[in-house]
């Protein structure tokens, strides 16, 4: 029993990332009808927003501390981050410590800006082109984005720690009446899951309860009619693209402490996220979220030692296997709508 709970919990954080990326992909697909292979790159850019922001925060200058001396007997030089000068040592230190959560604020405008530029600059010209062309041009864009990041930050992963307060693990076992130390779960993953749930909830609420969201949903159902009613649907769809980019970016920002960001993390997630979207059903938002968590949890179950012993290698391929089975038995995916991308 405790094993099962551990695996479900382990699956949640990866599942959250899948769900967030897949949600953005589905939003873009449902609104603009564009297959965006650069979505993984947006996730990666988000993670690097966290890196950049924490670097900006820890920018420092050198001062000479007369009271202490180094091993040669000279006055010691120490680096003092500018944050300490501005906010005082204590507040400054904690601001630097909280760099990753704070970079959410920093990354929202950046990701929205990138999304907006991408849609207006590139995707707009590909509405009418075949899906193959859309895949190819966004694939090219993904290569370009990740190479730019590589040029600036190098090929090695960059450690971006979570705030001090979240570094430990939470003992779930005690809460549920098991022995202590049986079900340990890092705090930050818990935060990530809560954050993902919050974002997903916010996107759904936005679409469901605002006038803007209503118009967008109407546009997803029948773009032409909405246009005929005198609504500038293109502008709203552009904004939806920016929101989708932002969702992917935020998923990346918060993921930075879990896996140290490197330039190809986006591609690694992209392939799986596409599988998630297809399993959930192209164009179905709840499907994307559901399939994201489902596949994340399945993946972690498949990596249990007992399962791996029984079926060697299953942990590597379970997602693809599930995708193949679902696509062949339920061609529209788990929650696909009729008539969306049937062919």
């Amino acid at each position: 029993m405790d094993q099962i709970i551990v695996q479900v919990l382990n699956g949640l954080d990866k599942g959250s990332a899948y769900a967030l990326i897949a949600l953005g992909l589905t939003l873009i697909f449902g609104t603009l009808g564009v297959v965006n292979f650069a979505h993984g790159a947006l996730f990666m850019l988000g993670a690097f927003c966290a890196v950049i922001f924490s670097r900006i925060l820890s920018l420092s200058h050198e001062i000479v501390d007369e009271t202490r001396t180094d091993f040669l007997g000279n006055p010691m030089k120490i680096d003092v981050p500018y944050m300490h000068d501005i906010f005082g040592p204590e507040l400054g230190a904690s601001i630097i410590d909280w760099a990753v959560p704070l970079s959410i604020l920093f990354s929202i405008p950046i990701m929205v800006g990138i999304g907006f530029a991408m849609e207006r600059g590139l995707i707009k010209h590909f509405y009418k082109r075949p899906h193959a062309d859309q895949i190819l041009v966004t694939f090219g864009l993904a290569i370009v984005l990740q190479e730019i990041i590589k040029a600036f930050f190098g090929a090695n992963p960059i450690q971006t720690p979570a705030p001090e307060a979240f570094t430990g693990s939470f003992d779930f076992g005690v809460l549920l009446g098991f022995d202590p130390l049986t079900i340990m779960y890092p705090y930050w993953r818990l935060v990530y899951f809560a954050f993902a749930a919050l974002i997903i909830g916010a996107v759904f609420a936005f679409l469901q309860f605002t006038t803007f969201g209503m118009v967008v949903r109407a546009g997803m159902a029948d773009r032409e009619t909405v246009g005929l009613l005198g609504i500038d649907i293109d502008r709203r769809f552009t904004l939806m693209f920016a929101i989708a980019a932002c969702v992917a970016g935020l998923a990346g920002v918060m993921y930075a402490p879990i896996v140290a960001p490197n330039y190809h993390m986006g591609m690694d997630f992209l392939v799986l996220s596409f599988v998630v979207v297809v399993v959930g059903g192209m164009g179905s938002l709840p499907g994307a979220v559901f399939a994201g968590f489902l596949l994340g949890i399945l993946e972690s179950f498949a990596s249990m030692p007992a399962v791996v012993q029984l079926l060697p290698g299953i942990n590597q391929i379970v997602i693809y296997l599930v995708a193949i089975i679902i696509l062949l038995t339920r061609p529209r995916g788990l929650m696909g709508r009729k008539g969306v991308m049937e062919e």
Partner: peptide
Amino acid sequence: ISLRRSGIYFSILTLAFAQMSYALAYSVL
């Protein structure tokens, strides 16, 4: 198997098969 679907689904299916072969060649096989 893959040709039972077309369009993007076909692309994803072939991708899934290739990634599976890669993962298997890398580990179990």
